[in-house]
Design a protein around this nucleic acid. Structure first.
Lengths: 189, 189
DNA sequence: CCTACCGATCGGTAGG
DNA sequence: CCTACCGATCGGTAGG
């Protein structure tokens, strides 16, 4: 019944899912992480999959909201793309653990959640791709296959959770600038 | 005892590991995929982890050999980086299933394999990073944090296994050119 | 290569 | 929130 306890469980679960993966994390592992017995978890959640489902949909919600915000802004298309890259990096850095479940563990969802998740994800990608396409139409982005550009951007930002730990020397804005610079202008001189 | 049967098992396992993950793949799933009973698998392999270990180390071996070849070439540093990106894409496209285990499932290895794998991987990254650093020293690559550049390149190429299926309209060399172009010259006009 | 089976562990429930 | 326990499934072995 306690709302915050559910959140504590979710955060502990996200950490375990990142470190071992969803399938390799047992309810007993999770219970131990929050100092409970496995059976007591069920006072706060309905089952293992509910946690994964919540993590996946809450994270996708945050990405969609960020996208919506960028879409509404009255700026150039290349500025919109810069903003989206920046938002991805910031999201990945402030909630590094949930991102992993969102990226890699969603496939363990069962129906109907799996289909819903895929649909949301596809919609996000389509709207991001539209911005890239419009950037090309308006001669702000170099011509090319917008799908390849889309996935190259998304992938570049995906590795962050694998590497970034909050005690890093490198500041967040230095990292953002570097990655945006590579994607927008390339590494060649 | 049959060598090719072991290979058949390994290929089927790589496919299952990609689709469901290592932990969520049971020996019974694997047995069914190669038309055997679970117990019969043990005539060809010593256990579940051996398959994962073989996939991980064989794949890392292929990447190291490709790196070595590029290092020896008498070409500019930016050409070496182009070559490495190309080799990653080609490897990912010719053996799309093993790459997933290599990328995402190695963490399920137990010691001492886990440490060995991490060491090999780190060495690969260090040598790739050296080429980037030398590219900067020789004014062929824009100045920046070589680690960020390294991971941005590796990540860009990592998503391929998630997306590419061999029946694609897009040819391999078109894909290579596009990704190399994005990374070397950027997407901005 | 199979049948038969092992102990361990899984997600989850009953009942208090 | 716990103890006690469920049936199912896990990786793997014995023996033929």
């Amino acid at each position: 019944m306690n709302r915050s306890k559910k959140k504590v469980i979710q955060i502990a679960a996200a950490k375990l899912f990142r470190d071992r993966g969803y399938a390799a994390t047992s309810m007993r592992d999770l219970a131990e992480a929050v100092h409970l017995k496995a059976s007591s978890l069920y006072n706060h959640i309905s089952g293992k999959e509910e946690i994964l489902k919540d993590i996946c949909f809450e994270t996708s919600q945050r990405f969609l909201e960020a996208l919506e915000e960028v879409e509404k802004k009255d700026i150039s298309y290349s500025e919109k793309i810069r903003h989206l890259i920046q938002l991805h990096i910031q999201t990945a850095m402030t909630d590094v653990t949930s991102i992993t479940a969102f990226n890699d563990e969603w496939r363990h969802l069962s129906e109907p959640h799996l289909s819903t998740f895929k649909t949301i994800r596809k919609e996000y990608e389509n709207r991001f791709r539209d911005i890239i396409q419009q950037g090309m139409d308006n001669h702000q982005i170099r011509n090319g296959d917008p799908t390849i550009i889309l996935y190259t951007i998304l992938s570049s930002v995906r590795w962050l959770y694998d590497w970034y730990r909050p005690d890093r020397v490198l500041t967040s804005s230095e990292l953002e600038d570097s990655i945006i610079n590579i994607l927008m202008s390339g590494i060649a001189k």
